[in-house]
Simulated scan of single mutants.
Amino acid sequence: MMNSEITVNFHLTKNCNFRCGFCFAHFKQSSHLEIEKTASIVREIKKSGFRKINFAGGEPLLYKNFESLLLVSKEIGLITSMISNGSRITKSWVNNNAPNLDILGISCDSAKPETLRQIGRGDGSSIDHTKKIFSWITDYNEKSGRRVFKKLNSVVSKFNWNENMSEYVASLNIDRWKVFQVLKIEGENDHKFSEFETDENEFNFFLKNHKELAKFGLKIVPENNSAMTNSYLMVNPDGCFYYNHNGKYLLSDPILDVGIETALKQIHFSKDKFKKREGFYII
C-alpha cells in the first residue's frame, strides 16, 4: 500500500468544550503549534506522498487558525477531512468552509439526551444539532454541485451498548457510520475507564442492533479495540507522530526536526491493519 492511500490524522489541539469520559485524546501538552508550523507539517505530509489529511483534536475548531489551515491543505491538493463534535459548526461556517472540505465527520454516541449527558458529550443538544449540520451539508452539495462526504462517528460504551439508534442514524442521510468500541489508554482515560468499558459481546450486540441499516445503503464500519490499535497514523499537537504501545501512547521526534521519514521509522503503524479496517475508501 502506497502513502497516497493512507490518511494522516492531525490532532491539532488537546482543547475540547465537551468532557466525554471515555476520550483518549487528552494530551498532556499545554499548548499547540502556531499556524506557520502546522502548515509546514501539512506541506511535509503532502511532499511525502500522502493524499489525505484528517483534522481532529480535542475539538479541531478550537484551533484558532483552523480555517486557514484547511485552505492551505486544499490548495496544495490534499483530500481534506475533519472530525468534530459539531458544537461550533453553523450554517454560515458550512457555506464558508465546505468548498475546502471533502469529508465531514461528526461525533455523536446516542439519540438520547440523557445518555449524552452521562457520557459527558455536552448537554444533549448535539442530537438535533448534528441533524442540522448534515442537512446544511446536503443543501450545500445540492446547490454547489460538489459532494462533501458525510460521516458519523459513535463510540460504544457501557452507557449506550444496548441502545438502538437506527431511526436517528437513518434520518441523518449520511454516507458512512464508524462505530468504535471504547478503548483504554494509560494516562488518558484509564482513571474513568471502568465506568465506560464494554466487552466484545456488548459491542457486537450494538452492531447487531443496527445491521438493518445496511439494507438502506449506509456503510457501517465497526472497529473493536484490536482493529483500532496501530492502524491510525496520528500526529499530536506538538507535531510528533504517536502510537498505542501496550495501551500507552509513545511519541516520535518532532516531524519538523527530523523529517517525516525518520519520524515514521520511530513508530509502529500497520498498513495491513489500516487496509483491513477499511481506512482507504473512495468518496
Results as ranks from 00 to 15, higher is better:
Asp199Glu: 08
Cys108Tyr: 00
Leu172Met: 02
Gln266Ser: 12
Phe280Lys: 10
Asn204Tyr: 13
Leu104Asp: 02
Ser194His: 13
Ile103Tyr: 01
Ser171Cys: 01
Glu36Cys: 11
Glu188Ala: 07
Phe55Val: 12
Thr80Leu: 05
Gly124Met: 07
Asn204Cys: 12
Lys192Asn: 15
Ile41Thr: 02
Ser270Asn: 05
Tyr168Gln: 05
His268Val: 10
Asn246Ser: 06
Tyr281Trp: 07
Thr38Pro: 11
Lys158Pro: 06
Arg51Phe: 13
Phe269Tyr: 07
Asp272His: 07
Ser252Lys: 01
Lys64Ser: 14
Arg117Ala: 11
Asn3Ile: 04
His11Tyr: 14
Gln181Lys: 02
Pro99Ile: 10
Lys28Val: 08
Asn162Ser: 12
Asn164Arg: 11
Lys184Phe: 13
Thr38Tyr: 10
Met1Tyr: 12
Thr38Phe: 11
Lys151Phe: 06
Lys273Asn: 10
Thr198His: 00
Leu183Gln: 14
Phe66Pro: 07
Glu167Ala: 07
Leu183Thr: 15
Cys23Gly: 01
Lys28Met: 10
Thr138Tyr: 13
Gly124Glu: 06
Leu12Cys: 07
Lys151Asp: 04
Ile45Arg: 04
Met1Asp: 14
Pro254Gly: 06
Tyr281Thr: 11
Gln181Arg: 02
Tyr63Met: 01
Phe196Ala: 03
Gln266Cys: 13
Asp139Ala: 15
Asn160Cys: 03
Lys74Ile: 13
Ile103Ser: 08
Ile127Phe: 00
Glu75Trp: 04
Ile106Gly: 00
Asn17Glu: 07
Lys275Trp: 06
Glu142Ile: 15
Asn17Val: 02
Glu75Asn: 05
Asn17Thr: 05
Met234Ala: 04
Asn15Asp: 15
Thr262Met: 12
Ile35Glu: 11
Tyr243Ile: 06
Phe55Met: 04
Ser135Val: 01
Met234His: 12
Ser40Pro: 09
Glu44Asp: 09
Leu101Ser: 01
Ile89Ser: 00
Phe50Val: 02
Val221Glu: 05
Asn230Pro: 05
Ser231Arg: 03
Lys215Gln: 11
Arg121Trp: 05
Phe134Trp: 00
Ile41Asp: 10
Asp139Pro: 15
Lys158Cys: 15
Leu70Met: 13
Asn230Ile: 08
Asn201Leu: 15
Phe269Ala: 10
Met82His: 03
Tyr63His: 03
Phe66Val: 03
Ser4Glu: 12
Ser31Val: 10
Gly259Lys: 11
Asn54Arg: 13
Asn17Gly: 07
Cys20Trp: 05
Phe280Pro: 08
Ser30Gln: 15
Phe159Met: 09
Asp272Lys: 08
Asn9Leu: 12
Thr262Cys: 11
Thr7Lys: 06
Gly49Lys: 04
Phe205Asp: 15
His26Gly: 14
Ile41Gly: 09
Met82Thr: 14
Ser157Trp: 03
Thr7Glu: 06
Lys74Trp: 08
Arg43Ala: 08
Phe27Met: 02
Pro254Leu: 03
Glu188Gly: 09
Asp238Val: 03
Thr7Pro: 04
